[in-house]
Each structure stands twice: as structure tokens, then as C-alpha cells.
Design a protein around this nucleic acid. Structure first.
Length: 771
DNA sequence: TCACAGTGACTTTTT
DNA sequence: GTCACTGTGA
């Protein structure tokens, strides 16, 4: 279809946003208002109508899924958009660092440490630290990096008050640099620091990117904001899209201020609001609005439904979680019998753990499903082992990977021996640092293989033999990979060599999964060899026999995932990077089939489904227990996100009892359920008493009341009830409402005095008079 | 250095 | 109920 036709289907605000130029642009886009359409159309428009080189447009998103979808849609509109880098923030950061590894003082072949690796590294950097404390510190370090604060930043104390923390952070950074690797936070923070310091790099970026677009801007953190800021030169066009009501990543450093103060940082910003919702029916939107309107801190906007009234949503009360599973399964089975595809359905939950019950039941009933965003696969021991091998071959200074693989299967190389070898490496690095030879760190840098050799004569006879065996194993495997390099040298660039109008040798196009030739050796073959030769295969096969697990099968799965990558170092690095930046296991294309989606609420951002069931709508689960007022608002936004994923049908389920920690607990309905106006939703099943009481109070016009405990009080202490107080005598209730979570009544006494009480705490002095 | 058994902690949410 | 960590004995 011609672009004109695409422009003609846009509403006036969308069209304005697409055509806007000349100043920074902030699009405030409600859920389902077609913001992805606006971004993709804008990209196509810039390329075909404004003659912008597709290479010079950069689009940034938060998840791989969103990036892929955006790329696909842009390409459909304008084939040249295939050259436009549409990336996640983190994959952009990784690309940037591969091109500037020297400035960043990291290894060219760096890999990315995840949270677990951070914790392990911390315990090695500071041996006295217990694991629990290490997790806390690791989390705090991540948060600091989200705010782009180095150990030297004076603002560090604002985030973490512990006076010892800067030193811990510093020690961690030093150890991390020694490995040559980076963590997630570095992928954003290091580029910012380099750009701030280095004018040449900055100008290079100004030349490289003339247009920068950011999606889901409400979830950007301070570091990401600074990155965008640094990338923008005086002539760069910047456009961001976001919705403050959908900001759900504060816990990870997301800063709503970024969207609220965008205009201050980018003067002359044009703001365009998109308030027409093309996704959900108005019944569903009404519920979403009922809930989110209880938030105090929001810009405030009202979505207008463009899709008619639709079906009423249903609130379903169920005895326990098994009934919840059954209810969902039967609902889906029935609709499937009537011809509705499984893929119309999505089951949403607050925590990953909740997927388990659905998985087992669906397996049993033969309902096909996919679990989206589950990290489980890459958390499996055997997968971590294989990935550690790959990481170590990619970067032999990777201490964490080294420790993981050197003694697995057991070769008699324990912690003491490992420490010795690592100490040799660290000593050497220290000497190098002192003699300032750091420029030569990369190509033939001293690594753990070298230090293994150097440590040999200090080891016991047994350890000596094992270490020798290990280093030879690694060397041989690495040779395997490097020999392939010669034959497959040009494979990665081949796919682009012909199409590139202008060649930019910065690897931004390098997408291994597209670039592997049909005939070239595949990386999967290498991994198979590795699994066999390293003894991992045998080791895990025996584990399978002992406990009936599927480890060998999982390892095979990992090999399959690598089949799209060429068998050389570049292929290995891109494979690892791909996995590190997107832990969700992708299905092979031919395996895409009709299935129910099981997904956490967080993961649904940017997605939509015809039929949605939000499960576990119980206090303590959703919202989670011990939330402060601010966090409660974020949970409420999460609820809003969940509701607005639904196109046509919405179900909310709430259980009376739920098994937790192996115990069965009695649950209360989620306060969010109480916020939905009774006329907006049909109720099915046995309403809990607290819920009934609340609704009754609501009917008595006590609309203020939020929590069910107070609803109980409100039933007794409502307006115009006569009371007697020990000190003030007789009176009548003027007003009853909830203030800051407490139930407060106002009483007019016969003496004329007006007093406020919390009846909950006045049982001894205040009583209701019988009529 | 390793295997096993007992204990305790535990569940957010993700790139 | 499950998983991971710790300490003990071989």
C-alpha cells in the first residue's frame, strides 16, 4: 500500500505527529491510541517524503519484542526502513561499546553480566560479604547506574546512605573492569560517560543520527534520558512517545520526571496528545479509567473509545487457585469449540510463580500455551554451564564464567585453587596498570588461560594435572572456532554488502541471525562439540538419569537457538549478546502455532489481545503486600496496563483461598476491584462478605471508602446515626469517610461541639444509641 | 574436595 | 512446598 493510504487512516492528531518537524516532539499517547503506528508511519514518512537516509534514523524501545514489532511494521510501510536501526536501549548501548571498547576500558569481546553474575562477582571482590548482603548491594549498584552515578559521584549518598557503599561500589567496578565485561547498567552508563567526556565521539554521533525516536518514554531512567540528551546535537530531531499512566518500572530506576520535565530539557517542545483509543471497547476502557483515576499523581487524560460499547467485563470470585485454573481452562476450551483461536486468549498474573498452576493444568488438558518472558530457561543450571563455557571462550578474562566451568564436571579443582589462579591474573593486571601499558590490553591481553599456566607450579600434583587438562580443553575448543573463521570470514557482512548505499563500518547492521549463509558452518555445531568434549553432556545426562530431568534436551534446545549464527567468533559474540539482552526463548519460525499466552502484567506492555483474563486479583498478591502510597500508585498503573490490553473481552479473577509457601491462606479481594464502579462489571461466583459490605456502603453513598476493613466500620457508623460519648454526651454523625487509610467520623454534639473520631479506637468511650 | 542431609528463607516486577 | 545454602563426615 502506498504511504498516502497509510496517512489517510490516521486521525488528525496522529497525522500532526507524523508530519511535525522543526522542534522536539513529545507525544502523550494513551493506551491503544496507535502510538506504534505513529512512530512507524513517521519513520516511513521521513524516509520517503523527507528524503532522510534510513541509516540516520534511530528508534529506541525497551523490549526486544517491541523493537522487532516496530521494525516489522516500519518495513511494511517503507522497505527502505530495513536499514533503520530500531533497537532496545541496551542493545544500542552494546553496539556503542563494541565500537568504543577502548574508551570504556573493556574487552572487545565483552559479555554482559546479569544480576546473578553481579552478586557472584561481588562476593569474590569482597570475600567477607554474605550472599544476602551481596544481593542488596548489587541491587543498589544497579540503581546507581540507572541514575548514571559513578562511585565518585557526590550524589551517591542521596540514593544509598550507607557510608561504606561507595567503597563497595568502587571495589565491584574495579573487579568488573578486570574481567573486561560489563553489567546491564554499564550498557547505558558507560556510553553516557564516554559521550560526556569525548567531543569527537559526540560529533560522530551527531553525524550518524539525525533523527532519534523513543518509545515507552515513561519507563526511561535517568541514564537513558542522559543518553538521549548526549546523542542529540543542535540539529538532531528528537521525538519521544509515552504515557504517564503506564509507567511501571520505577523499581528499576524509571523516572516519570523524564516525561513530565521533557519540555524543560528540550526547549520549544511541541506536545501532541493522542486520546482516541482504537483497541478496547468502551466497557473495558471505563473499568480502566475507574481504576487509574484513583491515582493522585498523574497528568490526567481521558481516553475516548472508538470501538463501540462491546461486552461487559466479568469479575469472577472463586474458592481457590485450582478453581481459578479450571475456570480459565474451561472458558478457553468452550470458546475454542466455538471456533475462537487459542491465541485470542492471554492469562495475566502479577508474579512469574503464578504461571505454574496454569502450565500443569493446560498440559494435562492439552491446551497449547506459551509462557512469555519466563527467564526460567536461562536460569537452568545446564544452560548456565554451557553459556559460561561460551562466554569464557569469547572472553578468557571472565572470572565468573571461569569459576563456573573449571570444576564441572568435578575435576578436583576447588575454590582454593581457583582463587590462586585468579590471584595470578589480578597481580599481573596490577603490574600492567602500574606500567601504563593499558593501550595494549585487548588483542593479546593476559588472561586466565595464561594465569592457569603460570600458576601450575604452585599447585598440588592433582590440581596441576586437572588444570592442565582444562586449559588444553579450552584452547582446543577455541581453536575449533577460530579455524572456522578463515572459511567463513565474510559471512556476517555478506547480506548487507550489496544493499548498503553508504557503507558505515560500525556494525550497526550486523545482525547475525540474518547474516548467516545457508552453506556456512553453524554455531550450533560448535556448541554440540563443546557440550560433548567438555564433559557437560555426560555430566548432565547422568543427572537426567538420577532425577528424571530434561537437561540434555534443554542443551539441545540451546544448540538449536544457535543454528542461525555463523560458526566463528563474531557469530559467538552476537549469539551471546542476543541471549544476554533478551532472555526470552524465541520459538523457531515454523513452530509458531495457535496458543494461549501466559504472561506477567509487566511483560504485556505494548501488547494487545482480544480476550484477557487478569488472575490473582487479591490483596497481597496484586497489589503486593507492604506497598507504600507511591508504590501503590505504580501497582494501580500496572492494573491499568493489564486492563487496557484487552480488545473485546475482559475477565478478572479473585480467589478466596490461595496456597502460599505450602500453606493455604485466606485472601481478600484486591482493593483495585473495589475501585471499579459496580455498574461497570458483572459479578460471578460467591462474593466475599467484605466485598458485599463494601458495595452496600457504596450504595449508601459512602463512595470515599476504599478498604474493606473500613467498609465494615462504615456499615455501623454511617451518616445520621445517633451516638453517645462519655465526655461530650449525645450527638449525631454528620459525616463518615476514609482519610489517609483511616475511617473517620465527624459528630455534631447536642452541646454544639463538632468532633472527629476514629471509632475503631474509641470502643470504650463512644457508642451507638439504640433507636 | 565432595556428597549428603538438615535448615531456613522465600516470591515482585526486567533489560 | 521448594530451593539453595551451610556444615559435617568421609
Amino acid at each position: 500500500m502506498e504511504l498516502e493510504n497509510y496517512l489517510s487512516v490516521l486521525n488528525s492528531q496522529q497525522l500532526e505527529a507524523v508530519k511535525h518537524e522543526g522542534s522536539p516532539l513529545l507525544i502523550l499517547a494513551g493506551a491503544g491510541s496507535g502510538k506504534t503506528r505513529v512512530i512507524t508511519t513517521k519513520i516511513a514518512y521521513l524516509i520517503s517524503k523527507k528524503n532522510i537516509d534510513p541509516y540516520r534514523i534511530l528508534a529506541l524501545t525497551f523490549t526486544k519484542k517491541a523493537a522487532n514489532e516496530m521494525a516489522e511494521r516500519a518495513r511494511d510501510l517503507e522497505p527502505l526502513a530495513v536499514k533503520t536501526p530500531i533497537r532496545t536501549f541496551h542493545s544500542f548501548g552494546a553496539w556503542f561499546l563494541r565500537n568504543h571498547y577502548e574508551e570504556a576500558q573493556i574487552d572487545k569481546n565483552f559479555t554482559v553480566y546479569d544480576d546473578d553474575d553481579m552478586v557472584t562477582l561481588l562476593t569474590k571482590a569482597i570475600p567477607s560479604m554474605a550472599k544476602k548482603q551481596a544481593s542488596l548491594i548489587a541491587h543498589q549498584i544497579s540503581l546507581c547506574k540507572d541514575y548514571c552515578l559513578t562511585p565518585e559521584s557526590p550524589d551517591l549518598v542521596k540514593l544509598v546512605s550507607d557510608p561504606d557503599f561507595p567503597n563497595l561500589y568502587k571495589a565491584y567496578q574495579k573487579r568488573l573492569r578486570e574481567t573486561g565485561n560489563v553489567d546491564f547498567g554499564d550498557l547505558i552508563m558507560l556510553p553516557v560517560l564516554i559521550l560526556q567526556k569525548n567531543e569527537d565521539v559526540r560529533h560522530h554521533m551527531y553525524n550518524r543520527f539525525h533523527v532519534i525516536m523513543v518509545d515507552e518514554y515513561q519507563d526511561s531512567n535517568v541514564a537513558q534520558f542522559q543518553l538521549v540528551q548526549q546523542l542529540c546535537g543542535p540539529d538532531t530531531y528528537v521525538g519521544v512517545v509515552g504515557d504517564d499512566d503506564q509507567s511501571i518500572y520505577k523499581f528499576r530506576g524509571a523516572e516519570v520526571q523524564n516525561i513530565l520535565t521533557f519540555q524543560d530539557h528540550f526547549p520549544g517542545t511541541k506536545i501532541i496528545k493522542l486520546e482516541s483509543n482504537y483497541r478496547s471497547t468502551s466497557q473495558i476502557l471505563k473499568i480502566a479509567d475507574d481504576v487509574v483515576s484513583h491515582n493522585k499523581s498523574r497528568l490526567g487524560k481521558t481516553l475516548v473509545a472508538e470501538r463501540g460499547n462491546g461486552k461487559r467485563a466479568k469479575l469472577v470470585f472463586l474458592p481457590n487457585q485450582d478453581d481459578e485454573t479450571d475456570f480459565c481452562a474451561e472458558l478457553i476450551e468452550q470458546s475454542h469449540k466455538k471456533g475462537c483461536p487459542y491465541s485470542d486468549w492471554a492469562i495475566l498474573y502479577r508474579t512469574n510463580a503464578q504461571s505454574l498452576g496454569f502450565e500443569t493444568d493446560f498440559l494435562h488438558r492439552k491446551i497449547p500455551y506459551t509462557v512469555v518472558g519466563s527467564l526460567k530457561f536461562y536460569q537452568r543450571e545446564e544452560i548456565k554451564d554451557a553459556l559460561a563455557w561460551l562466554s569464557f571462550i569469547a572472553n578468557p578474562r571472565d572470572e565468573i564464567a571461569f569459576r563456573r566451568i573449571i570444576n564441572k564436571p568435578a575435576r578436583g579443582i576447588g575454590g582454593v585453587t581457583q582463587d590462586k589462579i585468579v590471584a595470578v591474573l589480578r597481580k599481573k593486571l596490577l603490574i600492567e596498570e602500574a606500567s601504563a601499558e593499558s593501550e595494549t590490553t585487548n588483542a593479546n591481553a593476559y588472561n586466565l588461560i595464561d594465569s592457569c599456566y603460570d600458576a601450575l607450579n604452585t599447585l598440588s600434583k592433582r590440581a596441576n594435572k586437572s588444570v592442565l587438562f582444562f586449559v588444553e580443553l579450552v584452547t582446543n575448543l577455541a581453536k575449533n572456532l577460530d579455524e572456522n573463521l578463515a572459511s567463513a570470514k565474510n559471512v556476517p557482512n555478506a547480506a548487507f554488502a550489496k544493499t548498503a548505499g553508504e557503507t558505515l563500518f560500525d556494525g550497526m547492521d550486523l545482525n547475525a541471525s540474518q547474516a548467516v549463509g545457508n552453506d556456512g558452518e553453524k554455531l550450533s555445531g560448535f556448541i554440540e562439540t563443546l557440550v560433548e568434549k567438555s564433559g557437560l553432556g555426560e555430566y548432565h545426562a547422568s543427572q537426567d538419569e538420577i532425577s528424571g530431568t530434561q537437561r540434555v534436551g534443554n542443551l539441545q534446545e540451546l544448540c538449536n537457538a544457535a543454528s542461525l549464527y555463523p560458526c566463528n567468533r563474531d557469530g559467538l559474540i552476537s549469539f551471546l549478546e542476543h541471549i544476554e539482552l533478551d532472555r526470552t526463548l524465541e520459538l523457531d519460525d515454523d513452530e509458531v502455532y495457535d496458543a494461549v499466552t501466559l504472561i506477567t502484567l509487566h511483560n504485556t506492555k505494548g501488547l494487545e489481545f482480544p480476550r484477557v483474563i487478569i488472575t490473582g486479583m487479591e490483596k497481597g498478591i496484586f497489589p503486593r503486600k507492604d506497598k507504600t502510597e507511591d508504590e501503590l500508585e505504580e501497582e494501580r498503573r500496572l492494573c491499568y496496563v493489564g486492563i487496557t490490553r484487552a480488545r473485546d473481552e475482559l475477565y478478572l479473577t479473585c480467589c478466596d483461598k490461595r496456597r502460599m509457601y505450602g500453606r493455604t491462606e485466606s485472601m481478600e479481594p484486591s482493593p483495585f476491584l473495589l475501585e471499579i464502579a459496580p455498574e461497570s462489571i458483572d459479578v460471578i461466583g460467591n462474593q466475599p462478605n467484605s466485598f458485599k459490605r463494601y458495595r452496600k456502603a457504596l450504595a449508601n453513598n459512602n463512595t470515599q471508602i476504599l478498604n474493606s476493613q473500613n467498609a465494615e466500620l462504615a456499615e455501623k457508623w454511617h451518616k445520621s446515626v445517633r451516638v453517645y460519648h462519655d465526655d461530650y454526651g449525645y450527638g449525631a454523625i454528620l459525616n463518615a469517610k476514609e482519610t489517609e487509610g483511616e475511617f473517620v467520623i465527624t459528630v455534631q454534639f447536642e452541646t454544639g461541639a463538632v468532633k472527629h473520631f476514629m471509632p475503631e479506637y474509641q470502643a470504650h468511650s463512644l457508642m451507638i444509641c439504640k433507636e
